[in-house]
Design a protein around this nucleic acid. Structure first.
Lengths: 214, 214
DNA sequence: GTCTATATCTCGATAGAC
DNA sequence: GTCTATCGAGATATAGAC
């Protein structure tokens, strides 16, 4: 669908998604959003009610289907009868993220970065409202990983998942700024396939690492 | 030194450090900073010139000594004659961060989280001005890690450092929000010793992982 | 150096015509 | 549903007395 033919609400969502990812929620004004969306300033409050509500709408538009896909992939994996591995469970999360990253009209790619950024920014909308809506996601992955990482104490498992998901969200965010720690031209942190290719073995190594600290 | 006896500029820096870490740069107003610092609103512009300049001052106050400590630790390690390991190099970075995290008047702990948050937020002041000032840091760690990870191609090494430093900054940031992926009460992501204890084996496993993707 | 007072601007949100 | 016009709040920054 061409940009000009999308309805007003969608145009606002697309522009907001892009701008929130680039500059963050607080630094993005409704005026900038409506200019880029080529709609009237008042349209935001007409369609969404407030800036906070717009942000929530931007998130749930893609988060709900993403959540469903992850759970569906877990269902397939667990009912397949095939042996389940750490990589297998990991890929049920990475594959939907990757599919979104490769969305041909680029909206999905924006969203993966926005989701990552929103998590690291610890925004109140993520902190207060979204967790309870996705308890199924949390429960399913907690169980799935405890099954493929059976040797770990509960606390140790929790820490490894904390670090692993933090790493993956951070990697998907693709911040160029981390390049200052490496030779700047080598790492192209924005190509999702490349990110995932390097991310997977790193995360698996961390998750399956036999060493446990005293 | 008691808080009340600190001079105005220091009180402003302390309050700004604390508030930037909690709410981010954009969402923190000079009014809030000066109220918490118990100084006059105009004092910020008198002492620092602008909000951007204040932010830069907050960063360089601690970043310059931190940078020096890391380089000094690398010097000691490399001149000791003892065998150099991945963990050894890693600890030259982690130890100064940890020392700062345990700053008794809590300013340092704030700063480590602020630094982490600023990196993941990809703020323009980090992106544009700071990298060139700390090229020594980058060069030294690039060389040190390539020495202890000799089997890796340059690109592979760059990716692993990208992921490793991203992970460490993210872990030091201690965002509660990642706890939604684990049982919420188990992980106390704010205690720096606990963070580091779980972080180190995870990072080492990722860095030294023999698997390389095609 | 520290204060009051204020200039100037931009923000989110809304009223009301069409 | 879409527009213009604007409100009131809050932002950064500064002028000028002390």
């Amino acid at each position: 669908m061409d940009s000009a033919t999308k309805d007003t609400a969608t145009r606002i969502l697309d522009a907001a998604e892009r701008l929130f990812v680039e500059h963050g929620f607080e630094a993005t004004s409704l005026r900038t959003i409506t200019q880029q969306a080529e709609v009237n300033l008042a349209a935001v409050n007409y369609h969404f009610g407030s800036k906070d509500a717009l942000f929530q709408a931007v998130l749930v538009r893609r988060l709900a289907p993403l959540n469903q896909q992850c759970v569906a992939e877990l269902d397939v994996l667990e009912k397949s009868g095939a042996p389940i591995t750490v990589e297998g469970v990991l890929m049920t999360f990475i594959r939907p993220c990757l599919a979104l990253s490769k969305d041909p009209n680029r909206g999905g790619a924006m969203f993966v970065r926005l989701l990552s950024r929103t998590f690291v920014e610890n925004h109140r909308l993520i902190r207060d409202t979204l967790p309870q809506q996705y308890s199924e996601f949390v429960n399913r992955y907690s169980k799935a990983f405890s099954r493929v990482l059976p040797g770990l104490k509960l606390e140790e498992l929790a820490w490894r998942l904390h670090l692993a998901f933090g790493l993956m969200f951070n990697a998907f965010a693709g911040n160029d700024v981390l390049k200052i720690f490496v030779k700047s031209d080598i790492v192209s942190a924005r190509d999702p396939d490349t990110v995932v290719r390097h991310m997977i073995p790193f995360v698996i190594a961390g998750l399956t690492n036999p060493a446990t600290q005293s």
